[in-house]
Computed example of a mutant assay.
Amino acid sequence: MAIQSALFSKVLRDRSLEEAVDLTAEIGYDGFEPMCRAPHLAVDRSTDEVADLRERLDDHDLDVPCLATYTGAYVGTSRSECEAQVEALERFLEFATLLDCDFVRHNPGGPAPWKATDQDVETAATWYQRAADRAAAHGVTLLIEIHARWLSETISGTEQLLSAIDRDNVGVIHDAGNMFLVGEAYGAESVDRLGDDLRHVHVKDEQLIADGDNRGNGNENENENEDGDGDGDAHGAFRLETADGLRTYRPRRLGEGEVDHAPLFEALVAAEYDGFVTAECSVPQDEPADDDAIATHELEQLTTLIDNAN
């Protein structure tokens, strides 16, 4: 199986789950990666609703490469909330079985490695082990996304966490956009370093607007990749505290920002990666038809990247 394309349904977040599936297929994607919160695949969906989703996906010949959940984030959280996160994950594991999906994204939480203590890593790993054991009972692999402000912000941080978790059914989501934000190498070197732990890939483009040294002044906002919110003069801009200081970025469509994905795709082909690459563009959507245009553009760019790498 060659590299295949998928769309993260967050791009179509203003549409119903059914409309999002239909449009994803109409545009021409091979896969559909559900955003696991309202209005899409929220935890309170019934078994019948998920069975209906599976039938709709089958009708469109769409695979589900991964369930993009927002479960986890164990550090600095009460025991009862951690327990609740594991129980929420259990429900998504049931959904994964119904949808014939092997991978579920599960968040280890923050802080970033350059802020984290050994105790933070131990806490996240202990709870993640419990989550992974639940997933193993369903035949599912949990995926840790390389993500700003998480313990998995960098490859070295991710490797440390994987070692502490020590479970065969835990892998990594490569995300060049997220890695660009924190100055992490995201090309061939990253593919080589992750090796067999690399199980899934997300792609999006970003652009640096400003680079300051006012780290830790309290004005930094959560990465827009999670919340869709930004702060700054440029449309959709957001501020991010990194190990090198406070920086301002804005999301862009693939090929219009500063993230050069070509070396990544060449490395994936060389490594014989045969999974999905999911587009998750976060640019602001101002008009009702923007999501259609964005999703179409991202597929065109993905197709070009795949074709050029082969």
Rank of each mutant, 00 (worst) to 15 (best):
L93H: 02
L98E: 04
D290C: 10
A279D: 02
C82Q: 10
D14Q: 14
A137Q: 15
A289Q: 15
E280W: 01
N308R: 12
D213W: 03
L181S: 11
L93N: 05
L305M: 10
L142P: 00
Y273C: 02
E26A: 13
D197K: 14
D52E: 14
I165P: 00
P34A: 05
A135R: 02
N221M: 15
E122N: 09
D197M: 12
S152K: 05
V277H: 01
R56G: 04
G28V: 11
D290F: 07
D63L: 15
L299V: 09
D196C: 06
V277N: 00
D307T: 14
A125P: 02
H138D: 06
R37K: 13
R250L: 13
E122F: 04
D61M: 10
A210W: 01
G183L: 08
P108L: 12
E266A: 15
T77C: 09
N169G: 06
C281Y: 00
K10P: 04
S78Q: 10
G183M: 08
D52K: 11
N217Q: 12
V11K: 03
H40N: 06
S156I: 12
E287H: 14
D274F: 01
F32T: 08
L302C: 05
D44L: 11
Q129C: 12
L143D: 01
A125K: 03
I146P: 00
A88W: 00
E280S: 09
G236H: 04
R37D: 04
L181A: 12
T303S: 15
A136C: 11
K115T: 12
G245V: 07
V43Q: 11
A6D: 08
G110C: 10
C82E: 01
L305E: 03
D196H: 07
A68Q: 09
E33Q: 13
Y29H: 02
L17M: 13
P108I: 14
I27P: 01
G187H: 04
D14T: 14
D63C: 08
T154L: 07
M179S: 10
T304H: 06
L194A: 07
A73V: 09
M179E: 03
G275F: 04
A135E: 08
L142D: 01
R247Y: 03
L98G: 06
L41F: 03
V172N: 01
S5E: 03
T158D: 05
A289R: 15
G72D: 02
D102R: 09
P251V: 14
A271H: 12
G139T: 13
I144G: 00
T24L: 08
E94Y: 02
P108C: 10
D58W: 01
D52M: 13
V277C: 03
D30I: 08
H235S: 13
A51F: 09
N217P: 05
P65I: 11
G245Q: 06
Y186E: 03
A73M: 10
W114F: 09
S5G: 05
F265G: 00
P113V: 12
P39W: 10
H297S: 07
L240V: 09
H200T: 08
E83I: 12
